[in-house]
Amino acid sequence: MDVILENLPLYWNGFLRTLFLSAVSGVIALVLGTLLAAARVSPVAALRGFSTVYVEVLRNTPLTIAFFFAAIVLPRLGVKFEQFEVAAIIALSTYTAAFIAEAVRSGVNSVPVGQAEAARSIGMNFGQVLNLIILPQALRTVVPPLINILIALVKNSSVAGAFFVLELFGYGRQLANANGDAVIPVLLGVAFFYLLLTVPLGILASTVERKVAIAR
């Protein structure tokens, strides 16, 4: 256990970096995913097609491919960045957005079609129907699956550790290498700090689920 206590500042640093990676990627993924879901239900066929292809490709390929693409292919295409963190955020948010798009789409489909018809019949345009009527009702049913996706995002951010981004898992690996005799406590410490992020998210999910159920 000493190895954890001695390296607490390092753990804490890694924890904060994981939190940062997850929070930034999470926000971008939420925005991008909601836009993709809106495109998926829009009356414009080209938008629907783009969204479908995007979601199917990103959802059905491993996260590491997204990382390789962001870290190696993008710079060759001329998209250069100073830090690997940027690549990690691009990979994590584009990948997670696909899952969020699917969750939001299923939430949109859970709102009875009559709600949209009533909104259209009082003269609302597509954007108003979506923003004022459908999404507020859809998001309530979507919150629990969204939080599941965010928990997965926190854990997925560890892949960044393999791409030279120092976050919780990256520091954990350094510590494990430096303390070959105490690998198990080192990894337990890493797991503990991940739980510190993901368990509250899970609790939040069940609280929100109980609070936002709407009567029909």
Partner: peptide, 25 residues
């Protein structure tokens, strides 16, 4: 066709549905 003009025209046509369809939220 679908679009801004249709939305404007729909505003002039009131519709009452069998299942009410009041905005639940």
């Amino acid at each position: 066709e679908e679009g801004k003009e249709l939305a404007q025209l729909r505003a002039d046509v009131g519709m009452v549905f069998q299942s009410f369809n009041l905005f639940a939220h």
